Simulated scan of single mutants.
Amino acid sequence: MFERLKAFFHNPSGYRTPLPEADASHAMGALLVRAAKADASYLFEEIRMIDQILAKRHNINPVAAAKLRAECERLEREMPQTAQIALILEHAINVEEKEATLIALWQVVFADGVKREEEDTVLHQIEAVLGVAPDRALELQSEAALKL
């Protein structure tokens, strides 16, 4: 009974928004959100960077990018395994897009001005799933820092 009562107060209407399609666009956005949250904070600078990346990558306006990010946030919450999200991209995009995605992920990590070990761990896990060699991943990380 306590669980039902707790669930009611958490979501009184019982309404759940359906998950967005787990396609490459949403998977990339979910990984951007996961990278931003890796250090247990989700700051405005990171959100702004995610929106900018999504707008540029998908050639959409800022409102559409914010809406896409919100969908990606939901997907990120529902998919607990980072590798599971990255695997969607691994099969859906080519090498150049994988590298562009890694640059974007590092830009999100760098957006708050502080790089933490937890963020490194998440990004290295994603790099491994995407099949990017560690030396190339380090070059992409440096490239991302220069783009800020």
Rank of each mutant, 00 (worst) to 15 (best):
R48E: 15
R4E: 13
A111H: 09
A86V: 04
E117C: 06
E46T: 11
A100N: 04
E97S: 09
R77C: 04
S41N: 15
D135R: 11
E21F: 05
P134G: 11
T101N: 02
A137T: 04
A133F: 10
L5K: 08
R116D: 14
A55R: 14
P62E: 11
D120T: 01
C72N: 13
I50E: 09
H58N: 06
D51M: 09
A66H: 10
F2S: 05
F110E: 04
L31Q: 01
E21W: 00
I50C: 10
I47V: 15
E99K: 07
L123E: 07
P80D: 03
A65P: 10
L43C: 08
P12L: 14
A55N: 12
A40M: 09
E71G: 07
R57C: 08
A145I: 09
A86I: 00
A55T: 12
A100I: 02
P18H: 10
Y42A: 08
A65L: 11
E71F: 07
A86T: 01
L54I: 14
L68H: 07
K37S: 10
D112C: 07
V108G: 06
R116V: 09
D135L: 13
R4Q: 13
K6D: 14
A70Q: 14
V95I: 04
E21M: 09
I88T: 08
E73K: 00
K6V: 09
E99F: 01
D39S: 08
W106P: 06
E46L: 11
A36R: 00
Q84F: 00
A64R: 07
L138A: 14
E118K: 03
F110W: 00
Y42M: 07
P20T: 04
A111S: 00
T82H: 00
E76C: 04
L123K: 00
I93S: 00
Y15N: 13
R48A: 15
E46I: 03
